[in-house]
Amino acid sequence: MIRSLVLGLLLLGGLWCPAQKKIVVYQSDFGLKDGAVSEMKGVAMGVSPDLKLFDLTHEIPAYNIWEAAYRLQQTVPYWPAGTVFVSVVDPGVGTARKSVVLLTKTGQYIVTPDNGTLTLIAESLGIAGIREIDEAVNRRQDSRKSYTFHGRDVYSYTGARLAAGVINFEQVGPLLPKQEVVSLPYQHAVMEGAVIKGTIPVLDIQYGNVWTNIPAELFQKLGVKFGEMVVVRVMHGGQMVYQGEIPYEETFGSVEVGKPLVYLNSLLQFSIALNQGNFAAAHGIASGGEWMVEVRKK
């Protein structure tokens, strides 16, 4: 109780700096076919060669802010307090969108454009504080004439300085109101009568499984047992894309090859699959806030 109170007071005062763990984790839509990711890491090494640099992913589909938001929500909770994430999916680079650092209530930092990337992590982990990057201080030297690579010149540089302890959170820049974080609209997981509604935040890309944001505890309110059928509807922009009756199973091998099943994925969220097949491709399903799922017991 006393420890929590002390940490809270330090956070409010902007003095707590667990970021000096020297860990930086990168995410982008750059891919690895050119030198962009290496440039960002080179800037970080120039700040401190003692930093430990890791990749979340660089295969976010181009300009897909929603998927960047989801991958942060999926990954950040598994990293220790003090980890600095640099997330660069920035179709508005050079425009009036803010460059920020968000400190979660669990102690991780996310350095990113405030363009919707923070939508899910702000909801799931909460915001202890958010600051706009002061580029008069936290920008790579001699980069003022570069307008299209803030990932290298601003975000990686600021993230590295924070992780290395060159600056603390208070020195990032001015404090912003928490409610000013840009949020993307989507269907939250809710139960309405006997029907659960949710969205498809992402596909399990390698296999084409359809992941939803419906958590296990909500799905279990339907009272469905293994082997029993559920009715699944998938809509896109209000138009029906798929409707079917599918068994709820514990694992893929519980149905024949090529047959559908619903299951709880590794994040314990309701998901849809074909055993050794691609459910998303078979039914023309994609992901994002405009995709909606409805589930009910048969």
Rank of each mutant, 00 (worst) to 15 (best):
Y155N: 03
Q239L: 13
V47Q: 11
L10K: 12
S287P: 00
K259M: 13
Y186T: 09
P113H: 07
V262T: 14
A62H: 13
L222P: 00
P113A: 09
N209D: 15
R97K: 14
P61I: 07
E294S: 11
K225A: 15
E245N: 10
I133C: 10
Q141F: 14
L72G: 06
V202E: 09
F252L: 04
V255R: 01
V76L: 14
V101D: 01
V224I: 13
S38R: 00
P91W: 14
P80T: 11
V182C: 01
S4N: 14
I110D: 00
E249T: 12
K221P: 00
G289L: 02
V25Q: 03
G126P: 12
Q239D: 14
V89W: 03
Q171C: 04
A136R: 15
A44N: 02
N278T: 04
G46D: 06
L72A: 09
A69P: 06
D55P: 00
A36P: 00
L261K: 00
E228N: 03
G14Y: 10
A164Y: 05
Y109E: 05
S99E: 14
G46F: 07
G35R: 01
W79Y: 15
I130V: 15
A194V: 05
L118W: 09
F270N: 09
S28Y: 02
E290C: 08
E250S: 13
L268P: 00
H236Q: 13
G8W: 11
T117I: 15
L274R: 07
Q179V: 05
E217R: 14
R139K: 15
S48A: 09
A286M: 10
P49V: 03
E39H: 06
Y207V: 14
M235E: 15
E170G: 01
L261Q: 03
V166G: 02
L53P: 05
L125V: 02
N209T: 03
A282W: 08
G173V: 05
E59V: 10
N275D: 02
P174R: 15
E132H: 07
Y109Q: 07
A36F: 13
N168C: 14
A62W: 12
V84L: 05
Y147D: 09
N64L: 04
G94D: 01
L184Q: 07
L184V: 04
H188I: 04
A19I: 03
Q20S: 14
Y242R: 03
S143C: 11
R161K: 15
V47R: 09
W291L: 02
G198Q: 01
A216Y: 12
Q243E: 15
A280R: 02
A286G: 15
L162T: 09
T106R: 13
L162I: 12
P49A: 06
Q74K: 15
I272P: 00
P185S: 14
I65M: 05
V257K: 15
T158K: 01
F226S: 09
R140V: 08
Y242L: 08
I65F: 02
S271M: 10
K178Y: 12
G107Q: 13
F54G: 10
Q20G: 12
Q276V: 08
R233Y: 08
A44L: 01
Y263D: 03
I205F: 14
A282P: 06
